[in-house]
C-alpha cells in the first residue's frame, strides 16, 4: 500500500510547527533548544516557536508516534541531565516525506501558473 494512503488522514496537512520540528529532527537527534535553533535557521528566522509551544507540540507528536525520546545521550558528561533528546520514528520519517511531497506539488503548480520563477535546475 502507498505510504501516503496508509497515513491517518488527520496527519496531512501538517501544522507548520509539526512540519518544522519533523524537518529539524531529520538532521538527527536534537534537544529542545537545538530544535528551536534549527527551526529558526531553516526558516531564516521567520518562524518563531516559544518554549511552551515547542514542548506542547513535542508532547502531542510523541503521543501520535511521530517522534520519540532518545535513550542515548550524545555526550552525557557535557550535558545537563534535564535535557532530553528527541528523534524521528519511522512513522515520523514517512509523514515528513509525504508532507514535503505535497508541498513540492503545490510549488510545482505555482510555477506552472507562473506565480514564481523556474528553479535553476529545471528547464
Amino acid at each position: 500500500m502507498n505510504n501516503s494512503q496508509s497515513l491517518k488522514p488527520n496527519f496531512i496537512p501538517l501544522t507548520p510547527a509539526v512540519f518544522h520540528i519533523l524537518l529539524a529532527l531529520s538532521e538527527g537527534e536534537l534537544h529542545g533548544y537545538k530544535i528551536m535553533q534549527t527551526v529558526s535557521r531553516n526558516t531564516d528566522g521567520q518562524f518563531h516557536m516559544g518554549p511552551g509551544t515547542l514542548y506542547g507540540t513535542i508532547k502531542r507528536m510523541g503521543a501520535e508516534g511521530l517522534i520519540e525520546e532518545s535513550e542515548e545521550r550524545p555526550d552525557p558528561d557535557l550535558d545537563d541531565e534535564r535535557r532530553r533528546y528527541y528523534r524521528l520514528t519511522e512513522l515520523g520519517k514517512i509523514v515528513v516525506r509525504v508532507e514535503s511531497e505535497r508541498l513540492e506539488r503545490l510549488v510545482r503548480r505555482a510555477r506552472e501558473l507562473r506565480l514564481m520563477p523556474e528553479s535553476k535546475g529545471e528547464t
Binding site: H31, Y33, P51, G52, Y55, R82, R83
Partner: peptide
C-alpha cells in the same frame, strides 16, 4: 505537562 517538561523548560531558558 508540568511534570514532564518543567526541567526542560528551565534548562532551555538557562541555555538561552
Amino acid at each position: 505537562y508540568q511534570t514532564r517538561f518543567e526541567g526542560e523548560l528551565v534548562q532551555l531558558i538557562l541555555t538561552q
